[in-house]
């Protein structure tokens, strides 16, 4: 199948696709666990605060910036590539901070995510959001290394496989969040 085609998928890209399958299964496990538990006693649904809409917009715009970064990389415009990458990284930090801020809203309303008397729904939201943040951070680290190399490495490589893989992963993490957001919104 893959072996004969001219446009062979880069081996790293292939590995990425398979590991995205793994990640999907993990989050599918968590969200289906919530569905199972929802049907049991003592279940209280909580309204999602508007801060999570902000998070979603921030993350989605970072998908836009990394897309542009990739375009500029392919045009060998390293200046814009670096700038857009930095904006992407910055946006993801905004996203993470805003996530934590959103959770503090619950705590201020005396709704607990973890710990004694925590609410089941919020615990699920908390664990899922934390795991998602870890995946965002993974992307940030990889992108930072790439930008760093673009600044300092003496050997200039213009192989675009790395940025392709990275941006695919980035879009994946964004879509993952959108899925989680909608899930918690409508469940």
């Amino acid at each position: 199948m893959l072996i004969n085609s001219k446009e062979r998928i880069h081996p790293h890209m292939f590995t990425l696709w398979v590991s995205m399958g793994s990640v999907i299964m993990m989050f599918a496990g968590l969200t289906s666990a919530l569905i199972v538990k929802k049907n049991q006693s003592a279940w209280i649904n909580i309204e999602i605060p508007y801060q999570f809409y902000f998070s979603t917009i921030i993350l989605l715009s970072s998908s836009g910036t990394i897309y542009l970064a990739k375009r500029f990389f392919n045009l060998r415009n390293m200046h814009y590539f670096r700038m857009l990458s930095l904006i992407t990284i910055l946006l993801s930090f905004f996203f993470i901070v805003n996530q934590f801020y959103a959770f503090s809203v619950f705590e201020n309303n005396n709704l607990h995510v973890f710990g004694r008397n925590s609410n089941g729904f919020l615990s699920f939201l908390g664990v899922t959001a934390l795991l998602h943040i870890l995946h965002v951070l993974g992307g940030v680290v990889a992108l930072s290394i790439m930008v760093f190399k673009a600044y300092y490495s003496s050997v200039k490589t213009y192989s675009n496989s790395r940025i392709n893989i990275l941006s695919t992963y980035w879009h994946f993490v964004d879509i993952l969040w959108v899925y989680l957001f909608l899930f918690f919104l409508f469940i």
Binding site: V18, M25, M26, G29, A33
Partner: peptide, 14 residues
């Protein structure tokens, strides 16, 4: 393995 171990992992996280 690739599709089922992550689910176990999510169980462990909880």
């Amino acid at each position: 393995g690739v599709l089922s171990f992550p689910v176990l992992f999510s169980g462990f996280i909880l």
